[in-house]
Every structure is written in structure tokens, then in C-alpha cells.
Amino acid sequence: MANKIIEVKNLNYRYMDNGPLCVNNINLEVEEGDFIGIIGQNGAGKSTLMKALTGLLRPSEGQIFINGEDIADIPVSVISNTLGYVLQNPDRQLFAETVREELAFGPTNQGVSEEEIEKRTDYILESVGILHLADEYPPALSKGDRAKVVIGSVMAMEPKIIILDEPTGGQDYIGRYQIMDIAKKFREKGHTVVVVTHAMSLVAEYCNRIVVLCNGEILMQGTSREVFSQPEKLQQTFIRPPQITELANAMKEELHIEETLLCVEEMGDKVLEHIEA
């Protein structure tokens, strides 16, 4: 069995003493190498949960173990060596003069040797697709490129886990896929990816497991097919499955569809089967 890289036990979080619980009794296990999608309505507690994992917010009650260690007494700067966090608004974490310096900032602070930093930044510039921007001023880049730089700068620290908080909001179609492909590549190198998003078709396509939050609690979790096969339940947390899944659900009986369909090709093949029959 794979290593439990994140373990959350009975986690509660309230922003104000005696205030409402924004994260309510969450128990969660993430295995090393997972590509987890966190979905749920605005205000469901997604970003709060993520900030608790990074140590930026400390639990009101409960425990969080990252790579087997209880993080209660570990400073954020140390946690960030294991768990990298890309904020919802990437512009909040850009500050260097050039893209290359931006990528080097994290590992420099980790005390990584200069040769190793150069090796890492070269690799990331290449693999994230921003080599041609190496000497550019980050704030002047396009939205899609700024997001790639920020993700790259976190990846440069080689954290075991990377959290992406709504990385594709406001990105165009091509940008969205490029960003998810970067995450996928990072996962293929053995890292764990946690992505918070409202883009259901991307979750369906990329994540091996989905956690659905609703009012601070876990409403359900499972594979994309398991989760999207329950549209009524998802409605509680203001989620609608991808359009193609809705179509397949609507025509379930006519087309004898038993499983939950997630992409255009799956639905297309089903329709073709019926026309040919």
C-alpha cells in the first residue's frame, strides 16, 4: 500500500473564537502519487482546508500529518519544503525581477547549491514551457504565463506535494490544459498533486480521486465516475457534472448506459454503437 502522504484527523477550523466552523470534522487520507481534486461550492471550506495543510492556518481542533509527521509544531517555512502551495491569485506571489530569479528564489532559501539550482531552473523553464521567457519581468507576462511561472517557482523547491488553488480560473481553454498537463507531468515524477477547482471537465479528466466539500464537511469522495454519477447529491454543493455527463445521465435508459461517462469520446462511441446496432 502506498505511503500516506497527507492525513487529516478530526480537523475543525473556525476563523473567530466561538465563530462558525468553516472546516467541520474533516478526516482525509491522501496517498503518495495521488492526483486529488477538491471541489465544492464557494465558501465550502476548500481554501481554508488547504491553508491548514500548509500550516498557514492552525487547526482549532484535530491533527494534520504531512509525510507522517504531525505539523502542529512545525513552522510554515519547514512545511513548505514538503508541501508547496500555489495561491488562488498567483499575482500575490510574484516579486522577482526575472522569471529565472523567481524560480531560483525558493531553492536558494532552501540552501540548495548553485549548480543544482541552475539544473532545476533549466529543467522547469523547459518542462513548464517558459524557456523563452527566462529573462522577462514576471508581472508583465500574460495571465497564463504568470500562472506557469508561479507553479514553476513552487515546483523548483521539489516539494513532495503541490497544492494548486484554482489554478485555471480565468484561463483560456489552451491555458487550462497546459496548466493541468504541467501538474500531470509533476505527478508522473512521483509527486502528489492536490488541485482545488470549479472546472469539472478538468477534474473528470485528470484526477484519480475527488473530494467533495459542502459547508465545511466532506460530502463524498471517490473516483470521478463515482462522484459524477450522483448529480442530485452534488447539487447540494452547487456542482453540476460536466455537460457530457449530464447528457449521458439524461439518456441513460434510451442508450442503455450503465456507467458514468466523462468525456466526449466515451459518449460518442456509445451513440455510434446504438446507431450501428
Binding site: 461550492q41 464557494n42 465550502a44 484554482e166 480560473g169 480565468g170 470549479h198 447539487q235 452547487f238
Partner: peptide, 13 residues
């Protein structure tokens, strides 16, 4: 200008 980029799917509708 992109008023729903951070909204959940039903919130967008």
C-alpha cells in the same frame, strides 16, 4: 469582466 472565474458551476448559472 470574467465575473464568474472563481464561482462554482451552479453559482455561475
Amino acid at each position: 469582466d470574467e465575473p464568474t472565474s472563481q464561482l462554482d458551476p451552479i453559482g455561475t448559472y
